[in-house]
Simulated scan of single mutants.
Amino acid sequence: MSLKTQIGDDIKAAMKAKDKVRLVAVRSIKKVILEKEVEARVEGRDELTEAEETELLVQQAKQRRDSIEQYGKAGRDDLVEQEAQELAIIEEYLPKQLTDAEVTAVITEIVAQVGATSPKDMGKVMGPAMQRLKGQADGKKVQSLVKAALGG
């Protein structure tokens, strides 16, 4: 089942259950999918690839994390809670998130492959790491683990 179909089904279920938070979250995902599909049609494609769908979900999750951080700084706990609930719903659609140990293992492998030895080599490691861990680990987590692996 495609993400778009699943989202459509989940919108109907949220409406029947009168689950306003879930409804807002899944509608926001559907909106972004529809916008990207319009862009894809310009390129001559009818549907998004699975990788593009995952990228959209990663972007939506990142937006929620950033909003949580900003609202937290502003002391808006009500909005922090709302964004956190939406983030949890979005994460249900993402691939399983890797543990720190799993991410570190991937980073260690990449460090060995590219021959990185110092914090100066961070760029050499981050590109392949983000490509390989797309949707499975938060970018900030990857960045901090790469820094640690390179002794930064």
Rank of each mutant, 00 (worst) to 15 (best):
V111N: 10
P95Y: 00
V142D: 11
L34G: 02
K62Q: 14
R64H: 08
G151R: 09
E102I: 02
D100T: 11
A149L: 07
E69I: 06
A129G: 07
S118H: 05
Q113P: 00
V38Y: 06
E37I: 14
V146H: 05
D9A: 13
L3F: 12
E69T: 13
S67K: 15
A84G: 07
D138E: 15
I29D: 03
P119I: 11
Q59E: 14
A149W: 10
T5W: 00
E39K: 13
Q131I: 00
K12D: 13
E35I: 03
A116R: 10
T108N: 14
I7A: 04
K12A: 15
D121L: 05
A148L: 12
Q70L: 13
Q59W: 01
I107P: 02
M122F: 10
V146A: 03
Q59V: 08
P128M: 05
E55S: 13
E91T: 01
D9C: 03
K140I: 07
I90Q: 04
A112S: 11
A137Q: 11
G72H: 06
E81Q: 15
V114D: 08
A61I: 00
K16V: 15
L3P: 04
I29F: 12
Q82C: 06
I33N: 01
A51C: 01
I89W: 02
L145H: 07
E69F: 10
P119Q: 07
A25E: 01
V21Q: 02
L34V: 14
S118W: 02
A148V: 04
A84I: 02
D138G: 10
R27T: 10
M122R: 04
R132S: 10
V146T: 06
V21T: 15
